[in-house]
Structures are given as C-alpha cells and as structure tokens.
Amino acid sequence: MHSESPRSPGNAGTVFFRILGPLQATVDARPVPLARNRQLALLALLLTEAGKAVPLGRLVDAVWGEEPPVTADKQIQTCVWRLRKAFVKAGASAGLIETVRGGYLLRLPEDGLDTRLFERLRLTGRSRAAAGDAIGAVEDYRAALALFQGPPLAGLESPALEPVAAYWAERRLALLEECLDLELAVGRHRELVGELSLLVEEHPLREPLRWSLMAALYLSDRRADALAVYHAGRATLISHLGLDPCARLQDLHRRIIAGDPVLPGAPARAEAQLSGAP
C-alpha cells in the first residue's frame, strides 16, 4: 500500500533515542517530529525490545490495551509506515524499522539509545570503584544519572510500558544511592545535604537515602539534625508499614548518639562538637 524510496545506508544519519524521560528521537542531533499519540507507544515498545522481533499482538496491546479496535492490525501498519516516513525524511536509514514474520524489529547502533549509555557508564564506574578510583567512579555515575530528563517514558500512558518505566526508575535510584555512598566516602558530605534532603522528602520510605542524609548531616557537625531525620523516618515507617527502621539505620542512629565514626576513617564529629574544635 505504501512505499518509500530506499536510502543508501552509507548516507544515513546517526539516530539516537531517549526513553529516560519523554520519548525523543534525533537524527544527526536534530529532533525528529513524531505524532504524540499511538505512534509514540508503538515506537517505545520497539525501543525497549531493540534488536528483537516484536509480535504484532504486543504492539496492539501497547497502543490500545485490552480493547483494541477491529482495525488495530491495519492501524499498526499505518503507524509503522508513518514512523518510517518521518525517520527517512529526517535522514535515517529506511531499514531502521524492519518488517519481520508476525511483527516488526527496530535496529539500532550500539550507542543509539540512552539506556545503553547509562549501562555502559554504570559498569565503567563500577570497575573504577573496584579499582579504588572513587572520584572517577563518581564522575561516571553522575554522567549516567544526567541522562535522565524526567521519569522514564514520561507522558506515555500504556500498561504494557509501565513495567519498563518502573524498571528504569529503580535503576536510577539504585545507582544514585551507590553514587552518594561514594561521594560521602570522599568527603563531599556538606555538598550533599541539600540534594539528599530533597531526595528523602521525595522518597520517604527509601532507607538508603535516609541513611546517607543522616551521615551527611552528622559529618557536617549537625548531629541534632541527623537524629531528627532518623526519628522522622522511624515515625513514617511505623505509620505506613508498621515497621521499625532497618538494622543499618538503627546502627547509624546508635553511632551518632555515641559520637562514633560512621564511615571508615571518618572522625567522630560529636567529639569535635563537645570539645569546641572546628
């Protein structure tokens, strides 16, 4: 029904996609205009399965859920045609989205998706941390975290995509917690207090973040504030879950009260406060 003149692969532009935030596509760093409807949901599912054949039925589910129209298959074909047309017009290869048996497949270069860059930076940072280069690891982790431009797949309302969005949101928080631990270890506690305060407010049940905020405050000679953060967290946990803080938080609470070090090699800040030392 529809056809496009083939474009030479050698002349194809560099395609890059973002799903760590609103779905965006560029060719040679120029935005590709995409219709903000079912095309985005279809493209999002193809991107999350890049390099794999996605059955037509899954694409229909992603776009319409449990009540697709009787013309769903035809409408998916039209959506794919329009996507191909938009990308070819922007300078991408005509083979970006392939028709395969029973569905479609999206082919991407290795660095064509922000989640792939995220994972590469995360692994590089993890290797540098294991080698003792904490500052270098923090640089990689912060570069990975900077790839997020909002909630993953923001603005897309599709039950089929919700697990993907939740997965990458959790990946971000897990890496952020790892990064914050390293930054505390290299003495950046004062700089982190503001960021951690906002994070704990946003994620009040996330105990690793509360631990980091308490440690940052204590190391910044703010023992009373650190204890207040603990008690606020304990009240929140009991109110919402009926649980006491985890053992790690309780141990930190005891250390702060005793004026003990909370990190390897960290000074006992409470002793400095009591003696009047700076």
Rank of each mutant, 00 (worst) to 15 (best):
Y167P: 04
A94E: 02
P152V: 10
V229D: 00
A129T: 01
G57Y: 02
L192G: 01
R122K: 13
L176A: 15
R255D: 06
G102R: 07
V70Y: 06
R36S: 10
L263T: 12
V32H: 01
L20Q: 03
S93Q: 01
C79D: 15
A25H: 02
A44R: 07
P109D: 09
T78H: 13
A92D: 08
R36E: 07
L205Y: 11
A166C: 06
L249G: 11
L175S: 05
Q77S: 14
E177Q: 15
A272Q: 12
P22Y: 03
E110R: 09
D61Q: 15
L173W: 14
A226K: 02
A29Y: 08
A165F: 02
L121N: 01
R18G: 06
A185M: 05
R126A: 03
H2L: 12
R18M: 10
P109Q: 10
A174R: 14
G136R: 03
V80E: 13
L117T: 09
Y218E: 00
G103P: 04
A232V: 04
L83M: 11
K85G: 08
G150M: 11
A131F: 06
L20S: 03
R36Q: 04
R254V: 02
I257K: 07
T26E: 12
F16A: 14
T26G: 13
S93P: 01
L123Y: 00
N37R: 13
P278V: 09
T71N: 07
A25M: 07
P109F: 05
L46N: 04
A272D: 14
A131G: 13
A174N: 13
A160Q: 13
E271L: 12
T71M: 06
T99P: 01
L196T: 01
A50S: 14
